[in-house]
Simulated scan of single mutants.
Amino acid sequence: MKLGVYNAVLHDRPLEDALAVIADLGLTGIEINSGGFLPPTHIPEIDEIVASPAAAKKYLARFDGTGVEIAGLNCNGNPLHPNRSIGDKHADDIRRSIRAAAALGQDRVVTMSGLPGGEPGVRHPNWIVNAWNSAALDVLDYQWEVAAAFWSEMDQFAKDHGVKVALELHPQNLVFNARDVRKLIELTGATHLGVEMDASHLFWQQADPIAVVRELGPLILHAAAKDVRINPEHARLNGVLDNGFRRLAPDEDRVNLGGDEWANEWPKDSSWDFVALGKGHDTAYWTEFIRALHEVDPDMCLNIEHEDTELGRIEGLEVAATVLTDAWAAFAGK
């Protein structure tokens, strides 16, 4: 198994410095953001790489002697966004990422399934959380039609380039659990779509990532190491679907998600938080997580994604890397 880091947390420094950080952690892979919600900070020459084998070779040379190699491209976004200025760009970024992956000798691109609006002609996505009424199922029927058409085309595009697309099971997307994965594959007949197993989003839904890995088997194509901590004192009052976010003002530091959409501030009294490995689930859990992934593919890439706001960038990576490497050692020792 290949253990590495998703590079978004290291976008504050040049690629060479990011590679040094990862190597110092004792890890060997870097999953590189290539568009979507975030810019391709560590691969700004992505268009040149797609167009020119020489540019691809030059980019790969930057990894020589570092002890770190590319472990997939990441293009998380919403390619089904009904505001086409966002949706079309994110879809184009996925296609570009697939071409770039092929040019770089990679066979995995991570993204999200996306989320359409609730009906034709609207400008905002509509996430149906609990379809208890017939109107909600009408919305879902429409959204699945949109998704099936898009992902059928994208599956063929990925197949043509020898790349597989791994969808993160992220809520606020149409596909966010095991049942949805099966449905998308059935609707599309896809052979080059599967799952990026990010355990964190399953944890807060009260799903078991290990059970999902074993249920989906070869559909698990890639994995992320990110933990979640439930905060009982707040969850018992507001549940895990708490919407206590704050809109950030234009003069505050905020992340653009496309068009005029921006990330909001996380609730201060959150029902749950993304945390470094070990702060939600112990090393023994991550050992079994690795075991399940290894059963699917011994060469699986498992990359740390750091979003723990209680820890600095490097501090958080150090905490996570210690737990991950300890879990790997426990697994390898059987």
Results as ranks from 00 to 15, higher is better:
residue 4 G to E: 04
residue 8 A to H: 04
residue 8 A to Q: 10
residue 15 L to T: 03
residue 18 A to Q: 03
residue 20 A to L: 14
residue 23 A to E: 10
residue 23 A to D: 13
residue 28 T to D: 10
residue 31 E to C: 14
residue 41 T to V: 13
residue 42 H to M: 04
residue 45 E to Q: 15
residue 50 V to P: 08
residue 52 S to Y: 14
residue 55 A to F: 12
residue 59 Y to A: 09
residue 60 L to G: 05
residue 61 A to T: 13
residue 63 F to D: 05
residue 67 G to C: 07
residue 69 E to G: 08
residue 69 E to W: 01
residue 70 I to D: 11
residue 71 A to T: 12
residue 73 L to C: 12
residue 74 N to G: 14
residue 79 P to C: 14
residue 81 H to S: 06
residue 83 N to C: 09
residue 84 R to Q: 09
residue 84 R to C: 02
residue 87 G to H: 13
residue 88 D to Q: 14
residue 89 K to A: 12
residue 96 R to P: 02
residue 97 S to A: 15
residue 98 I to A: 08
residue 101 A to T: 12
residue 105 G to E: 07
residue 107 D to K: 15
residue 112 M to C: 10
residue 112 M to T: 11
residue 113 S to V: 06
residue 114 G to D: 04
residue 115 L to Y: 10
residue 116 P to M: 09
residue 119 E to I: 06
residue 128 I to R: 03
residue 128 I to D: 07
residue 130 N to I: 10
residue 134 S to W: 09
residue 135 A to I: 03
residue 138 D to Q: 13
residue 140 L to S: 08
residue 141 D to M: 04
residue 152 S to Q: 15
residue 153 E to L: 10
residue 155 D to Y: 06
residue 155 D to F: 14
residue 156 Q to T: 12
residue 157 F to N: 09
residue 158 A to C: 08
residue 168 E to Y: 02
residue 170 H to Q: 05
residue 175 V to A: 11
residue 176 F to I: 07
residue 176 F to R: 09
residue 178 A to K: 00
residue 179 R to I: 07
residue 183 K to P: 15
residue 186 E to V: 07
residue 187 L to H: 15
residue 188 T to K: 07
residue 192 H to Q: 10
residue 196 E to G: 01
residue 199 A to C: 11
residue 201 H to G: 15
residue 205 Q to M: 13
residue 207 A to G: 11
residue 209 P to D: 01
residue 211 A to N: 09
residue 216 L to H: 02
residue 219 L to N: 08
residue 220 I to M: 00
residue 220 I to E: 00
residue 225 A to L: 03
residue 230 I to E: 05
residue 233 E to S: 04
residue 237 L to K: 10
residue 238 N to P: 09
residue 242 D to W: 13
residue 249 A to G: 04
residue 251 D to W: 11
residue 252 E to N: 15
residue 255 V to K: 15
residue 256 N to E: 15
residue 262 W to T: 11
residue 262 W to Y: 15
residue 263 A to C: 15
residue 270 S to W: 06
residue 272 W to C: 08
residue 273 D to E: 14
residue 278 G to H: 04
residue 278 G to S: 08
residue 281 H to P: 03
residue 282 D to C: 11
residue 284 A to I: 13
residue 284 A to L: 12
residue 287 T to V: 03
residue 291 R to A: 01
residue 296 V to Q: 00
residue 296 V to C: 02
residue 296 V to L: 00
residue 302 L to Q: 00
residue 304 I to K: 00
residue 304 I to H: 01
residue 307 E to K: 11
residue 307 E to S: 13
residue 315 E to V: 05
residue 316 G to A: 05
residue 318 E to H: 04
residue 323 V to Q: 00
residue 328 W to S: 07
residue 328 W to Q: 10
residue 328 W to D: 09
residue 334 K to T: 04
